[in-house]
Simulated assay, not measured.
Amino acid sequence: MALVYRKQLDEKTAFAVWKIEETAEELYQQLQLKAHEQAYLETLNNGKRNLHWLSTRVLLRKMLSTSQYIDCQADEHGKPYLVNFPHQISLSHSYDYAAVMISENKGVGIDIELVKTKITRVAGKFLTRRELSFIEPGKQVEHLYICWCAKEAIYKLHGKSGISFLKDIRLDPFTSSDAGSFNASLVLPGSASRYVIHYERFHDYMIGYVTE
């Protein structure tokens, strides 16, 4: 089905969502892959992992609007980056959708998640008691997914391993709606950064994103 949603955040920053309805072969035919990328693909099990990897790269190509080879690699922490383009990027996927965020002048982070009730069982593993206290009972599942997507987006923006969702990423209280924004912090030894998190409901999914 290809690109189903695109949002331009400013002149140099945007994100988009791709609905994965193609086969792996159909996605593969839209890419220019080098030997090391083909070798990596062969290590993935056929199925969603393969489709997710391919679809994020196809969407990245669409967003960059280029016929050039896109050298997308991962650093020592697993954060994706582009070797031959100036853009900073963030990739995400969940079930039938892939999301890509790009910017020419700032760091970015995005997360997309299928909304499922099982998140209530693990809420205490990524939210503090203070954060749990502002979760609205009538919108519990959706509110929890906004919080998860927010912390995941900050984690991807920061791009370093060892970050604790529970201890290091702190969310200010906010009320849940279909779309909105709120403040959050990443607090590490010797530093603290403030961010504005944006989120929106997309069909049965939640999207959270952040920029530097």
Results as ranks from 00 to 15, higher is better:
residue 42 E to C: 14
residue 61 R to K: 15
residue 1 M to Y: 08
residue 186 L to G: 03
residue 69 Y to E: 08
residue 30 Q to V: 01
residue 82 L to C: 03
residue 34 K to G: 10
residue 48 K to L: 14
residue 119 I to Q: 09
residue 155 Y to R: 07
residue 198 H to Y: 08
residue 27 L to G: 05
residue 72 C to M: 13
residue 6 R to D: 03
residue 77 H to C: 00
residue 159 G to M: 03
residue 109 G to I: 11
residue 122 V to M: 13
residue 130 R to E: 11
residue 66 T to A: 10
residue 177 S to N: 11
residue 191 S to V: 04
residue 137 P to F: 04
residue 147 C to D: 07
residue 12 K to M: 00
residue 10 D to L: 10
residue 205 Y to R: 09
residue 82 L to Y: 00
residue 144 L to H: 12
residue 15 F to W: 14
residue 87 H to D: 14
residue 48 K to N: 09
residue 199 Y to R: 00
residue 45 N to R: 15
residue 65 S to G: 13
residue 160 K to L: 05
residue 200 E to V: 03
residue 117 T to V: 10
residue 106 K to R: 05
residue 98 A to E: 09
residue 185 S to A: 14
residue 49 R to M: 13
residue 42 E to G: 10
residue 182 F to S: 01
residue 24 A to S: 15
residue 80 P to C: 03
residue 91 L to F: 11
residue 196 V to P: 02
residue 187 V to P: 02
residue 1 M to A: 12
residue 210 V to G: 07
residue 138 G to V: 06
residue 76 E to I: 12
residue 11 E to A: 14
residue 153 A to H: 13
residue 153 A to P: 11
residue 30 Q to T: 01
residue 3 L to E: 07
residue 127 L to E: 03
residue 75 D to L: 02
residue 95 Y to Q: 14
residue 65 S to T: 11
residue 6 R to P: 10
residue 144 L to F: 09
residue 24 A to Q: 12
residue 34 K to M: 07
residue 124 G to P: 03
residue 105 N to H: 10
residue 95 Y to A: 11
residue 188 L to C: 01
residue 86 P to N: 04
residue 79 K to F: 08
residue 50 N to P: 00
residue 71 D to M: 02
residue 1 M to D: 05
residue 201 R to E: 08
residue 128 T to Q: 04
residue 142 E to T: 04
residue 113 E to Y: 05
residue 82 L to A: 03
residue 29 Q to M: 01
residue 119 I to H: 10
residue 29 Q to D: 00
residue 136 E to T: 03
residue 1 M to C: 05
residue 201 R to D: 07
residue 176 S to Q: 06
residue 158 H to W: 12
residue 5 Y to K: 07
residue 125 K to W: 08
residue 68 Q to L: 15
residue 52 H to N: 04
residue 1 M to E: 05
residue 44 L to C: 05
residue 93 H to Q: 02
residue 7 K to D: 07
residue 15 F to C: 07
residue 161 S to H: 06
residue 77 H to Y: 01
residue 162 G to C: 05
residue 137 P to K: 06
residue 59 L to V: 07
residue 165 F to Q: 00
residue 33 L to Y: 09
residue 183 N to C: 14
residue 174 F to R: 03
residue 75 D to N: 09
residue 92 S to V: 02
residue 24 A to C: 12
residue 36 H to D: 13
residue 36 H to V: 07
residue 149 C to S: 09
residue 186 L to Y: 06
residue 50 N to Y: 12
residue 186 L to H: 02
residue 86 P to M: 06
residue 136 E to Q: 10
residue 4 V to F: 01
residue 205 Y to D: 08
residue 44 L to F: 04
residue 20 I to K: 02
residue 147 C to W: 04
residue 15 F to N: 01
residue 74 A to V: 08
residue 14 A to P: 08
residue 163 I to Y: 07
residue 87 H to A: 09
residue 5 Y to G: 02
residue 120 T to C: 15
residue 30 Q to S: 04
residue 100 V to C: 15
residue 78 G to E: 13
residue 183 N to M: 15
residue 121 R to P: 00
residue 177 S to W: 12
residue 74 A to W: 15
residue 102 I to H: 08
residue 191 S to Q: 06
residue 119 I to W: 13
